[in-house]
Design a protein around this nucleic acid. Structure first.
Lengths: 219, 219
DNA sequence: GGAATTACATACCTATGAGTATGGTTCTTC
DNA sequence: GAAGAACCATACTCATAGGTATGTAATTCC
């Protein structure tokens, strides 16, 4: 029988295909309820292909986390390094963050919600190192936002409060989209932009101190 | 062998014990990764006990949802019915909502995050009726908040925008606690109150229009 | 152009876990 | 106090799914 493999060019692409397929199933059914066979079927292949690139199901999960954090950093870190005031910089970061969340929902949802992460923690030392690595990435990423929030607080443009406790609802307003958002066919690119802007605006108002601006009366 | 059953008084209490134990495991490990045996072990019993009260694992899951929504309604609905201005009523509702979330985390987390709900949707008609019932409860509950937000918007005390899209980040700021919050031994009741207040304040600022209050100059 | 390696498919092993069948013990009811 | 019901443990069935072992076509390398 003549078998032709689509040939994903190189190993990285092949793994990326697996990661994408797995993330989509993890997002909908959870990690445990998703079988390797189901992932393979989504790729039009069998288990053999997956186990050729990954030694276990958990390794796929960890690669999803790494992929998600890598992409978030790529989008947000450059903005975080820009020379801008906190009140200007933060919404740009938030916009980039949220845009990626929505556009890359399967992978990002698995990462930000940390689906069933306690599964691996319970396994003890086996994945301790990998888990520490992932947590470090997540902490570093949160830190990008926490620092800007802290700076804004000290400048007096953001409300007072520990950056730790302010960062949580800030992310919450945006990340909660991974729980409620469902893509619609009737939704254009502009619609998505509108939603993103609304959520970012909400999150920013949560931080900004009342500026006492004159009532820009009525429209 | 003399066997003594703790005898949970009546059937409702017995089911409630099961629901609590199951919720705690679902919260940490997810629905699929939690076995009936594990739930039984947490109760110091075996499967026999659980299958005496529940016909299937999924029925436990649905009972968790119902229990969560029932409690939320009990706490929030009375406040929603009170004769108060939106700007006064909403933070009280939010406080009650969040307090219950944190105090009843296992059950509430399973409910608000809808863990692996797609599992049951994929099963087609089998649980269609129950799923419709649960979704209805959730929608009704969200509606309590959406109406107050809508009223506030029309009065001009809350920012303009569809209540639909404003409700999401409002819940997000609070419900995200089910993702990041972990109880600490060093945390007193007052600490929890502080966290709740901070999150509610954040969420309210996300809605309130800039009042132009005079700078209550600096602390 | 033959050998080794890559890139899978197929077949198989095994543990787990949902659900059932059955049996025994306590409680209730008459 | 006997019969039934309620309550629960134990033993079993069976499907699923993670992982492995093996076979085989394509590719690469010498």
């Amino acid at each position: 029988m003549v078998m032709q493999y689509p040939a994903p060019a190189n190993e990285n692409d092949a793994k990326d295909d697996i990661v994408r397929a797995a993330a989509e199933l993890f997002m909908n059914y959870g990690y445990s309820a998703t079988s390797i066979d189901a992932i393979a079927e989504k790729l039009g292949a069998t288990k053999g292909r997956i186990y050729h690139y990954y030694r276990s199901k958990s390794q796929i999960f960890f690669d999803i986390q790494r992929a998600a954090m890598t992409r978030l950093f790529e989008e947000v870190d450059p903005i975080a390094r820009a020379r801008l005031q906190p009140a200007e910089k933060l919404p740009l970061m938030a916009k980039a963050h949220l845009s990626l969340l929505i556009r890359d929902m399967p992978i990002q949802k698995v990462a930000v919600q940390g689906l069933e992460k306690y599964l691996f923690e319970a396994e003890g030392f086996r994945h301790a190192k990998t888990l520490a690595e992932i947590n470090q990435l997540r902490d570093d990423y949160e830190q990008l936002f926490a620092e800007v929030i802290d700076a804004g607080t000290r400048e007096g443009v953001f409300v007072k409060g520990s950056p730790r406790i302010l960062t949580k609802p800030f992310f919450g307003a945006m990340n909660w989209a991974t729980v409620w958002y469902r893509p619609r066919r009737t939704q254009s690119e502009d619609d998505i932009e509108m939603i993103c802007s609304s959520l970012v605006d909400f999150a920013m108002r949560g931080l900004l101190v009342d500026k006492g601006g004159l009532h820009e009366a009525g429209g």
